[in-house]
């Protein structure tokens, strides 16, 4: 554990990524516990959002994050909002009133900043010049499950 924790202590994210994908599940347990303690979205919604993400990435010439656990978590977050609000509200924001926000639509994925300027601070859709961009526009259900298994 100490060795693995020591490795990402780098000066840039680029190295951290490589390491994170190699991490064994137990290492993540403690840090992830903090982030997540919520119910799982339905498989149906996850599949809808997965498909949407692949299609929109291709359509907008954007790519998934080099760390696809980021992609996976965001897809699940969108699915969760789709389940609870009926719309895929951006999971990387705080809202005073989620239901009102979902109705209003500005932050429903793909949000207005994404459609207008290809800005996705959730890092689901990244332009190729972004340091975090990988070179994939596809993600499987298996990947999503695997990469969010420790949450």
């Amino acid at each position: 554990m100490t060795a693995i924790r020591a490795l990402p202590a780098t000066t840039s994210y680029a190295v951290g990524f490589g390491v994170s994908s190699v991490r064994t599940p137990p290492t993540n347990l403690r840090s992830r516990r903090v982030v997540n303690a919520q119910a799982e979205p339905s498989d149906k919604s996850v599949e809808i959002m997965r498909k949407f993400s692949e299609q929109y990435a291709r359509r907008s010439d954007t790519y998934f994050c080099v760390d696809k656990s980021v992609t996976s978590v965001v897809i699940k977050g969108l699915a969760d909002h789709k389940d609870s609000l009926g719309a895929p509200l951006c999971p990387c924001r705080h809202y005073d009133d989620k239901a009102a926000e979902a109705t209003q639509g500005f932050w429903n994925c793909p949000c207005v900043p994404m459609r207008e300027r290809k800005e996705c601070h959730c890092m689901l859709f990244l332009t190729p010049d972004n340091d975090f961009a990988g070179n994939e526009q596809a993600i499987s259900m298996e990947e999503i499950k695997e990469l969010t298994a420790n949450m």
Binding site: N36, S69, V70, V73, G77, P91, C92
Partner: peptide, 8 residues
């Protein structure tokens, strides 16, 4: 936020 990928 709970389902925020970059937060992790």
């Amino acid at each position: 936020a709970s389902w925020c990928g970059p937060c992790q």
